[in-house]
Amino acid sequence: MKGGKYGGYVVIAVVCGVLLSFSRINPYTGQISLQELVLQLSGSQGEFTMGLYYGAMVDFGFLMLPFFLYQFYGGIQLYRQFCVASVYVFSRTTNRIKWYFTELWGLCKGLFVLQVFLQGTTILVALLRWEVVWTGDGWLLLGVHVLLFTLWTLTMALGVNLLALIWGSSTGFLVVFAIQAGMLAALCTGSKLELADPALARLLFLDPISRLVLGWQNGETIGLEEVLPAKYSHVLALSDSLLLIALMMAAVVAVGLVVIEKKDILVSNLETGGA
């Protein structure tokens, strides 16, 4: 039963992992260190950090694809309890806060399964094709990369759930996806700005999605200063990024607490309009 519950995530993770590995991990010399491998999964192309031009954004969208697909399925995990089994669930679980954190834990488990299989498949395929050099810094960087993407995806999936309670699942997902697309599109405006331009610094600082690109960040506080290219280190720091995304998640969790406490059982079907 449990295998069936997470089966979809495993399939998404394995398929996307294979595709990511073939498309992103292609070292010229046939050898790649773990930290370089992780940087490829975070937007870098070979030795070059991710640019701000249109093509780079499209490539980054491909990196985000397994997480967008998770947001499709994870985005209705809480919502479906409200509309499908709400009378059964809430008559037996009057403590909604406990129920909420139980469901959040379920979301985390699903995402954990996705990440394990995604990163595992990507690295395994890279291992079969190239020589991977294992380093301590590489493992730390992989951990930070996984943490950043996990927190981000969890925040967005929870956001879809909460918006779905008000507007239905399709609108909820559309809004959250549009926000992420808007953040990526906003980064394109930086392509014409010089490195020292304060407008570029403002754009990168204010646009949350820039926090997912490891190659742009300063890793000094975490002891990764030697492995990160730190292209925009004057604006972005890895420790700040982790804190910001964790705060975003905490804020969405807090809003979710308020919503599920106040929201009554959905008496009209937001999906089809009937009772």
Binding site: Y53, Y54, M57, L174, A178, A181, A185, A186
Partner: peptide
């Protein structure tokens, strides 16, 4: 090629918008 931000929004949103 000149300024991609809004076109990129449209291209990203199009697969969802077209169903709406």
């Amino acid at each position: 090629g000149y300024k991609a931000d809004l076109s990129m929004m449209l291209i990203q949103l199009y697969p969802l918008l077209v169903v709406c």
